[in-house]
Design a binder for these strands. Structure first.
Lengths: 151, 151
DNA sequence: TATTGTTATACTCTATAACTATA
DNA sequence: TATAGTTATAGAGTATAACAATA
């Protein structure tokens, strides 16, 4: 019976992520960014720029949606589009200096704000959690591949 | 330095939940439900009905949004509104027989589909993960309370 | 032919604030 | 006065499919 095994862990995973989201969203909105926009800014942070394809696969935002989210960030001067020298079909997105400033001003305080929650857990507990989450993620990704294969 | 502590665990938490979402969303959409709609149906499953207030706090959907999501589920005949006998201001939402049927037909296969990912982890690993996630969640909830207090 | 990104469409979700009715 | 839910508004995200340019 799969239910007894799956439900308790899923519930905790979902509730934990929701708690994270809840703490994050309220904090992020104070800086005038939506969660997907914040996701993009953070993903682009400390990179030389990423293609739409890569940005999409890292954030799980599909390409049609991504165009819109990037448009809005571009309109606000936080990111810019660049032609990709290696592949004429590809467009790179990178943070502008202003975007980089926002990344640093938003991301660092955001982490500092969340830190107490993580510091309350012993070092070994965090390591353990990290390891188990990684295991589960990899197993879940295999399930997604399985679903894709059915099409 | 908070960054070194927070980032790796958050990243794994986020990636793991994304992997779960990714596997779930694709699966759920095959049944014609959006993720928030599925969330509502699952939350109402095996209950005698919940008030909007309770439904909102369990799913983290704010009240204005919730009205719309419930409207769409009601239009499809999956849920129904009922007056609350104890409090005239309150409205209860519960699954219709059809909604209950969908709950069982969608939720069980959904779990069965995800199960292999969880079964790949040893029993003690799941328990450990569950425990750590709960700890982290409680700590994160405290951070949210902290943010609320500032207003 | 396949891939990258854009555009177009239609709908859902979202925050927010004003509103109604009950308590 | 406070609370539960609705309505109104405006914007953002979403899936999907058709499209252009390049590989």
């Amino acid at each position: 019976m799969s239910k007894a095994i799956v439900v308790p862990v899923i519930r905790e995973l979902a509730r934990c992520y929701q708690a994270f989201q809840h703490a994050s969203d309220a904090h992020i909105r104070r800086f005038g960014l939506t969660p997907p926009q914040f996701d993009i800014v953070v993903t682009l942070g400390n990179t030389p720029g990423l293609s739409f394809k890569e940005l999409g696969s890292r954030t799980l935002i599909t390409k049609g949606t991504l165009t819109g989210v990037v448009d809005r960030l571009e309109a606000r001067g936080l990111v810019e589009r660049m032609n990709c020298p290696e592949d004429g079909r590809s467009t790179l997105v990178r943070l502008t200096p202003e975007g980089d400033r926002v990344f640093r001003e938003v991301f660092e305080p955001h982490l500092a704000f969340l830190a107490p929650a993580f510091e309350s857990m012993p070092e070994c507990g965090r390591k353990e959690l990290e390891k188990r989450l990684k295991q589960l993620r990899e197993a879940l990704e295999k399930r997604s591949d399985e679903l894709d294969k059915r099409d």
